[in-house]
Simulated assay, not measured.
Amino acid sequence: MSDAELTVTVTGPVATVVIRNSARRNAMTPGMWRQLPVLLDGLEADRAVRALVLTGADGTFCAGADLGDLDELLEAGDGSIAVAAEERLAAFAKPTVAAIEGACVGGGCQLAVACDLRLATADARFGVPPARLGLVYPAPTTRRLAGLVGPSAAKHLLFTSELVDADRALRIGLVDEVLPADALAARVDAVTTAVAERSQLTVTAAKEIIDGRADDARIAWWHGQVRASGEAREGVAAVNGRRPPRFTWTPPAAG
């Protein structure tokens, strides 16, 4: 029986999704790719969840995708279940943090880049290997990678398929912070706690705008939410009163 699965825990306002596939260094199987959007739908609908952490079990983030059914992969192209899962993760309405140890390669790197923030241990290694396999990296994935690290660094990763260490990943902008292995969990907790304590109106609007998903009408709607919600008045009052703010805005229910 395979132990390949994604598991979810929710602690306070933070959900953690763990990639587990011990036999394959946490490679993503077809079932896991299909499972991820379903999990994300449920966590996005849970108003108690304010941030999401994606990580791997047993000191490895994710060593790639299971390429067992090559014919299916070639037929799907950019319509693959891996791209669908990546796009759902990128569109997740709440902040996402990839907590990366060990290998972050192929499909693992694809998922990490789809997160908002990436925190890595010093032993993490990153690679994008389609040139070793004769595959064309999906267009949405390629554009997201280039948007994060720039065209030259993206070309280096794609052209050479070389693994890069955490220090180089930090220099090119592939990760945001590099930490000792024993400090990663505490730093991820600190970041997600800070995010969860901030105005969710600010955080949600910022993610939409930065990701290019808010047109002029939507931006005007966000400013209307600021006026109607009282979030800004509460924030200023908290600063002036030297007390923690009591932000209460939550996203309107879908539909």
Rank of each mutant, 00 (worst) to 15 (best):
T55F: 15
G56A: 05
D58A: 13
C62P: 06
D66H: 03
L67W: 11
L67M: 10
G68D: 09
G68Y: 03
G68P: 05
E72F: 04
E75A: 13
E75I: 00
A76L: 05
G77Q: 05
G77K: 03
G77C: 04
G77V: 01
S80H: 09
S80R: 06
I81L: 14
V83T: 10
V83Q: 10
V83C: 10
E86W: 15
E86I: 11
E87Y: 05
R88M: 11
L89T: 07
L89Y: 14
A93K: 11
K94H: 13
K94I: 12
K94V: 11
K94S: 07
P95F: 13
P95L: 10
P95V: 06
T96K: 10
A98P: 11
A99S: 14
I100T: 08
I100C: 14
E101C: 12
E101I: 00
G102R: 08
G102N: 10
A103R: 14
A103Y: 12
A103N: 15
V105F: 12
V105W: 11
G107I: 08
G107D: 06
G107E: 06
G107M: 11
G108D: 03
C109A: 15
C109L: 15
C109W: 14
Q110W: 15
L111V: 08
L111K: 09
L111Q: 11
A112Q: 07
A112Y: 05
A112G: 11
V113Y: 05
A114P: 13
A114R: 09
C115N: 08
D116V: 05
D116P: 13
D116Q: 13
D116Y: 15
L117S: 07
L117M: 13
L117T: 07
L117Y: 14
R118G: 06
L119D: 09
L119M: 14
A120D: 08
T121F: 15
D123K: 04
D123R: 05
D123V: 02
A124E: 12
A124Y: 09
A124I: 05
R125G: 14
R125Y: 04
F126I: 05
F126Y: 13
P129C: 01
P129W: 06
P129T: 02
P130W: 11
P130N: 00
A131M: 12
L133A: 02
G134H: 04
L135Y: 07
V136C: 06
V136Y: 11
Y137E: 04
P138R: 01
R143C: 01
R143I: 00
R144G: 00
L145C: 01
A146P: 11
G147F: 03
P151E: 07
S152M: 08
A153P: 09
A154W: 02
H156D: 02
H156L: 04
H156Q: 04
L157F: 07
L158C: 02
L158K: 03
L158E: 01
S161Q: 08
S161A: 14
S161G: 10
E162G: 12
E162S: 14
L163H: 12
L163Q: 12
L163Y: 12
D165F: 04
D165Q: 06
A166F: 04
D167Q: 11
R168Y: 10
A169P: 05
L170I: 01
R171W: 08
R171G: 00
E177V: 07
L179W: 07
L179Q: 02
A181M: 04
D182G: 07
A185D: 10
A185G: 06
A185R: 01
R187T: 01
V188S: 04
V188M: 06
D189Y: 08
D189K: 03
A190Q: 06
T192V: 01
T192W: 15
A194C: 01
E197Y: 02
S199R: 00
